[in-house]
C-alpha cells in the first residue's frame, strides 16, 4: 500500500493510528490522552446510534409518508397519487412514544411508565415464541439413541457414535442434575454424586469457553496491529 502525502487517505490513516496509540497508552497507565479519545469515541458512537435509525427507518417509512413527501408532483401541479390518510395512524405511536418525555417532569413521570410497561409487555408476550422456537429442537435432539446400528455405517462408526451419544447424555443429565434444587438432596446420595460429576463436566465446558475466548481476544489485538504495521507505519514512512 502506498500513500501520497497530505491526501485524505493519508490523513485518515495517520489519525487512525494516533487513535489506536491513544487507546493503547492506557496499558502504561490511565492518562488524559486516553480519556480524551475515549470521550471522542462515545460522542461519535452516540451520533451514529442517533442518526442511523432516523435515516433508514424513521424518515423513510414514517415521516416521509406521513408528511406526504413521498408523493411526487407532476409539472402541472397534480400528484402521482392521492394522500393516504391511513398514514395519519402513525401519529398514535408518535404520541404514545412522546409520553417517555414526561419522565423529565417529575409530576407526570408516571406516564412514561405506561409506555415502558407496554414495551415490556410486548417482550413478555414474544418470549413464548422465542423460547419455543429456540429450545424445542434442542429438546428433541437430546433424545438420542444409546445404541446405533445403521447398515450404511461400519461397525466401528456405529460403536463410536453410540459411545458419543452415551457420553453426551451423561454430560447433559449430570449437568442438569447440578441445577436441581426442587428437592432436598441427601449428602452422598445418588443425586448429589451425579451433580458433583456434573460440576466436573461443567468445568470442561468452561475450559472450552476459555480456550475460544483467548482466540477472540487475540484476534482483536492482531487485527489492530496488522493495521499499524501494514498501513499506519507505511503512511508515517511516507513523511521521510
Amino acid at each position: 500500500m502506498n500513500y501520497t502525502l497530505f491526501t485524505l487517505s493519508w490523513f485518515e490513516t495517520i489519525l487512525a493510528g494516533i487513535s489506536v496509540l491513544a487507546i493503547y497508552s492506557f496499558l502504561y497507565r490511565e492518562n488524559k490522552f486516553y480519556r480524551l479519545f475515549e470521550h471522542l469515541f462515545i460522542g461519535i458512537s452516540t451520533a451514529i446510534v442517533t442518526i442511523e435509525p432516523i435515516k433508514t427507518f424513521f424518515w423513510q417509512t414514517t415521516l416521509k409518508p406521513l408528511l406526504g413527501l413521498d408523493r411526487l408532483a407532476f409539472p402541472d401541479g397534480t400528484y402521482v397519487a392521492d394522500y393516504d390518510f391511513n398514514y395519519l395512524l402513525f401519529l398514535i405511536p408518535i404520541f404514545f412514544g412522546s409520553l417517555y418525555y414526561s419522565i423529565l417532569v417529575p409530576k407526570y413521570s408516571w406516564l412514561a411508565q405506561i409506555t415502558i410497561g407496554f414495551l415490556l409487555g410486548i417482550s413478555g408476550g414474544m418470549a413464548f415464541n422465542a423460547t419455543m422456537v429456540e429450545v424445542t429442537p434442542q429438546i428433541i435432539d437430546s433424545f438420542r439413541p444409546l445404541y446405533i446400528n445403521l447398515p450404511e455405517q461400519s461397525a466401528r462408526e456405529n460403536l463410536i457414535n453410540s459411545l458419543n451419544n452415551i457420553f453426551f447424555l451423561i454430560v447433559l443429565f449430570s449437568t442438569s442434575c447440578y441445577f436441581f434444587f426442587t428437592f432436598k438432596r441427601k449428602p452422598n446420595g445418588v443425586v448429589e454424586k451425579i451433580s458433583t460429576s456434573g460440576r466436573w463436566l461443567m468445568m470442561g465446558c468452561f475450559g472450552a469457553f476459555f480456550g475460544t475466548t483467548i482466540m477472540a481476544r487475540l484476534a482483536l489485538l492482531i487485527e489492530r496491529l496488522q493495521f499499524m504495521v501494514d498501513h499506519w507505519w507505511v503512511a508515517v514512512m511516507a513523511l521521510f
Partner: peptide, 17 residues
Amino acid sequence: CTAITIPEAYNYFITNQ
C-alpha cells in the same frame, strides 16, 4: 460467530438449527 461464542454456536450446529 466470534470465537467466544463458539461453544454456544456448536449447540445450534449439532441440532441443525
